[in-house]
Write a protein that binds this DNA or RNA. Structure first.
Lengths: 129, 129
DNA sequence: CAGTATCCGTTCCGATACTG
DNA sequence: CAGTATCGGAACGGATACTG
């Protein structure tokens, strides 16, 4: 099937590629990177420092995916030592709004959710005995 | 926006708001279930039919997680044959807005993203030779 | 009808070490 | 500096068959 720019997905269709986007957003580091790239371009090392705890291998593969999807651009300056800058594309920037909305929701409600989860864990625990 | 400063330390924290919510939203079926439960309570089989392609085992475990997080309630009527209804809690309903925004972004932009991805694959392919 | 019980392949992602 | 190369554990989720 030839997918055109005018084609709209239907997330309820099991065959729908829309799910690739949900997979993307659900990726462990994607959203962090998108928020870090917010305004200005960032170098590989800057992103790595900003996130903390991500290994170069994983950062590389995550950035590759983002570039492949057209959410991020990679610019390599032919210098020694090497300098590479990553920045958001328009598409990537357009993803920020929904992602930020989600984060806001998280900040407001995560306490309650964690509370529920802990309480449920206790119930399950009591059930087990 | 001062996100990054407070973010850096939280990235390792499993209870970091963004992390918890994104894990949940990034789950393969969560978003679809939340949208399906929209208006009225739904039975196990109804949800299964509506989604299509989900196995009972996976649906069960996903629903369990949603119940544990207090996003969904499970009501079992003591009948034979059994009848069980799932519905959104207030917390679950409040998650709909941001999640729907995300899904709509996905549906609007998946074509471009897939297009980018295909084009990138061709470039990589050419590169390899 | 609404789940359980097993088995199992894939994918993700971290640790560690190395390189142009 | 900006990556690569390898290895391995663990979690996710699908296939299939069974049950109260």
């Amino acid at each position: 099937m030839k997918i055109r720019d005018s084609w709209e997905g239907d997330a309820f269709d099991p065959e729908c590629p829309t799910r690739v986007i949900l997979d993307r957003v659900g990726d462990k580091w994607t959203v962090l990177i998108i928020e870090i790239l917010d305004d200005s371009p960032k170098r590989f090392g800057e992103i790595r420092q900003a996130i903390g705890g991500i290994t170069p291998k994983v950062l590389t593969s995550t950035l590759r995916s983002l570039v492949a999807d057209g959410l991020v651009t990679r610019q390599s300056f032919g210098e020694v030592p090497p300098r590479v800058e990553y920045s958001l594309t328009d598409l990537g920037r357009s993803l920020q709004a929904p992602v930020t909305a989600l984060r806001r929701w998280a900040e407001r409600n995560v306490a309650e959710l964690i509370d529920n989860r802990d309480r449920q864990a206790e119930i399950d625990d009591a059930q087990a005995r």
